[in-house]
């Protein structure tokens, strides 16, 4: 393999990295919901809508909008437990006290980064009852593996 091949490989990796950088955007999706059909975001109107705007409006009419502020820090979240009712539209506003942290809720297809001094938000319909782990998906230090909070969706 020649050096040119390595350079080409590096270029491919750079493209991958840039793609990864853009992968944060779905958390800001304006009208629609994300691939899992639960997330409704704020700013970017280029993202495809999995659920029509009409449906979103219906959901908003029939459900209560819960605004929840979540602060991430090394190595935990405040509040530790978030409790909502099934059917609530949850507006999750996250920030960080120190280094960047991830907000990952597998069951709701949520994964975004909260940074210090910035408010990142995501909207979703809490349509699955149960207890769901909120995990940090961005390496934040030695205690990263134990960083956890809970989303509790009551019937």
């Amino acid at each position: 393999m020649k050096v040119q091949n390595i350079v080409a490989g590096t270029a491919v990796l750079t493209v991958f990295l840039l793609t990864g950088c853009n992968a944060e955007k779905p958390a800001h999706n304006k009208h629609g919901q994300e691939e899992h059909g639960h997330v409704m975001g704020e700013t970017d109107s280029h993202m495809p809508s999995a659920i029509p705007v009409q449906n979103e409006q219906e959901i908003l009419k029939n459900s209560e909008v819960r605004e929840i502020k979540l602060e991430a820090y090394q190595y935990g979240y405040s509040p530790e437990n978030i409790t909502v009712k099934k059917g609530d539209v949850v507006r999750l506003i996250a920030t960080s006290r120190d280094v960047p942290h991830g907000i990952f809720i597998k069951e709701y297809g949520i994964n975004f980064t909260a940074s210090k001094g910035k408010m990142e938000e995501v909207k979703f319909v809490a349509d699955k009852p149960g207890e769901f782990d909120i995990l940090c998906s961005v390496y934040c230090g030695r205690g990263h593996h134990g960083m956890k909070a809970k989303l509790i969706v009551k019937e």
């Binding site: 991958f16 990295l17 793609t19 990864g20 992968a23 991830g102 990952f104 994964n111 995990l135 940090c136 998906s137 390496y139 030695r142 990263h144 593996h145």
Partner: peptide, 19 residues
């Protein structure tokens, strides 16, 4: 793991259990 990170899969480093 890089490929996983690029596809937005969470790397929680559970194996780092005892420093």
């Amino acid at each position: 793991l890089l490929i996983a990170a690029l596809f937005r899969q969470p790397l929680t480093w559970n194996i780092e259990s005892n420093t």
